[in-house]
C-alpha cells in the first residue's frame, strides 16, 4: 500500500508523530466534566469564526445596507437563518462558557504555580471575548444595536479626563455614524479575532506544556 510507504517518508520530514505524541498521546490527571469548559470555549470560538466568515459573504457594513443585508441573510440566503442563529447564540454561549471556565480555574486554584501566565492570558481572552460581543452587537444596525451602542460608548465617555477622547475614538466622531460601523466591523472581524487567536496559541501551548492541573486533594 502506498500510504504505508508515504507516511514514514512524510513523517521523517514533517514530524507528524512527534506532534501526535506531544498533543494527544500524553498522560493527564483524572479530572471531571468541569474541565471540558475550556475546550467547549475553543469549539465555540472555532464555530464563531466559521459562521462569521459565512456571514461576511453577504453582510455589508454600511448604515444604508447593513440592516437590509441581514434581512437578506435571514430570508434570501439558503440556511442563512441557521448560520446567523448559530453565530448569535454561539456568542451568548461563548461568554457563558468562558466565564464558567474561569470560575472552574479559580475554584480549583489552577491559576497558582506554575500556571500564572496561563491565567493572565486567560483574563485577556475574557476581555477580548467581551470586546467581540460589544462590537458584534452593533453590526445588524437595528434599533437595539444602535441605542445599546450609543449608551455603551457614552459610558466609556464618562471616564474622567480621557473620556471624551475615548468616546470620539470609539465613535469616530461625536455621534454614531457610518464611521462607527466601519470601526466596529473592523474590530469585530480583524482586530479582536487576531488578538484572540494569538492569545489562544499561547494559552494552549502553556496548557499542553505544563499539563492540566489535577483536582486538589485535602492536604494540598
Amino acid at each position: 500500500m502506498i500510504s504505508k510507504r508515504m507516511f514514514p517518508w512524510l513523517d521523517e520530514r514533517l514530524g507528524i508523530s512527534g506532534i501526535y505524541k506531544t498533543i494527544f498521546d500524553r498522560m493527564v490527571p483524572k479530572v471531571n466534566w468541569w474541565f471540558t469548559l475550556g475546550s467547549a470555549t475553543l469549539f465555540l470560538f472555532a464555530l464563531q469564526v466559521v459562521t462569521g466568515i459565512m456571514l461576511s459573504v453577504y453582510y455589508v457594513p454600511s448604515p444604508d445596507k447593513a440592516y437590509d443585508s441581514i434581512q437578506y441573510i435571514m430570508n434570501g440566503v439558503a440556511f442563512g437563518w441557521l448560520i446567523r442563529g448559530i453565530h448569535h447564540w454561539g456568542a451568548t454561549l461563548m461568554v457563558i462558557t468562558v466565564f464558567l471556565h474561569m470560575l472552574r480555574v479559580f475554584f480549583y486554584a489552577a491559576y497558582k504555580y506554575p500556571r500564572e501566565i496561563t491565567w493572565t492570558t486567560g483574563v485577556l481572552l475574557l476581555l477580548a471575548t467581551l470586546g467581540m460581543g460589544f462590537t458584534g452587537y452593533l453590526l445588524p444596525w437595528d434599533q437595539k444595536a444602535y441605542w445599546a451602542t450609543t449608551v455603551g460608548t457614552s459610558i466609556a465617555g464618562a471616564v474622567p479626563g480621557i473620556g471624551d477622547f475615548i468616546l470620539r475614538a470609539l465613535r469616530g466622531g461625536n455621534d454614531l455614524s457610518g464611521v462607527t460601523l466601519a470601526r466596529f466591523f473592523s474590530a469585530h472581524i480583524w482586530m479582536f479575532p487576531l488578538i484572540i487567536i494569538a492569545l489562544i496559541g499561547v494559552h494552549l501551548y502553556l496548557v499542553i506544556r505544563i499539563g492540566i492541573s489535577s483536582i486538589p486533594k485535602e492536604n494540598e
Binding site: 494527544f24 498522560m27 493527564v28
Partner: peptide, 10 residues
C-alpha cells in the same frame, strides 16, 4: 503522581 495515575488525553 497524579499524572501517572491518570488517563491518556486521547
Amino acid at each position: 503522581r497524579a499524572k501517572r495515575n491518570g488517563e491518556k488525553f486521547f
